[in-house]
């Protein structure tokens, strides 16, 4: 049965009339107030801010490293030609079988035939819900026609919306300059 003596700290006069601590506290909060105000008024970026260090999501996003692998997409070359020649290597190498290609042959009269291209993907679909972002398609593509973007925020309401077709993939991929121009220099 021990008696516990609660020690009451002796308060100084300023502490007893509350004023000293109150002023101290007010100084602290106003410092934070003006700190945040400066950050907001100067529109500082997340990494420059000392306050409000939370990322303001839609405006600010993660800086991904260069080797980050996001959504796979198709690209065109600088002459606005779809680079994919429907060889289907990506389809075969894809571990989760997310890629489906319906290859088709060019007509005799098409421009590309003269350059030596024979096939093109009539339909090209990637199921983004199946995709595991492994990057094998990009690695294996002999035409450098499929790339992984730094994009990781795909949004949809139904499963079907996540099956991206050829036009959508091309639009997302945009243009990538082709250095070899293997079909043009033939």
């Amino acid at each position: 049965m021990g008696i516990k003596v609660v020690r009451r700290p002796k308060l100084s006069f300023t502490e007893r009339i509350y004023l000293g601590p109150i002023v101290k506290g007010l100084r602290l909060t106003i410092g934070h107030f003006f700190g945040t105000l400066t950050d907001v008024v100067l529109r500082r970026k997340q990494h420059e801010r000392k306050t409000a260090t939370t990322m303001q999501y839609p405006e600010e996003r993660w800086d991904f490293k260069d080797n980050f692998r996001g959504a796979p997409v198709l690209v065109s070359d600088q002459f606005d030609r779809m680079k994919c020649v429907a060889c289907q290597i990506c389809e075969f190498v894809c571990p989760p079988k997310a890629i489906t290609i319906w290859p088709s042959e060019f007509d005799e009269s098409a421009d590309d035939v003269e350059k030596g291209v024979e096939k093109y993907p009539e339909r090209f679909e990637i199921d983004m819900l199946r995709c595991i972002y492994c990057g094998y398609c990009e690695e294996s593509c002999p035409e450098e026609a499929i790339f992984l973007l730094q994009e990781a925020e795909l949004v949809g309401r139904t499963k079907e919306e996540f099956v991206f077709d050829r036009e959508k993939l091309l639009a997302m991929g945009g243009v990538r300059e082709d250095r070899a121009l293997k079909w043009h220099n033939k």
Binding site: I30, H32, F33, T36, L37, A52, T54, Q56
Partner: peptide, 10 residues
């Protein structure tokens, strides 16, 4: 907003 600024929020 003031409370947020004082707590380092927006």
């Amino acid at each position: 907003r003031v409370s947020a600024f004082m707590q380092d929020r927006l």
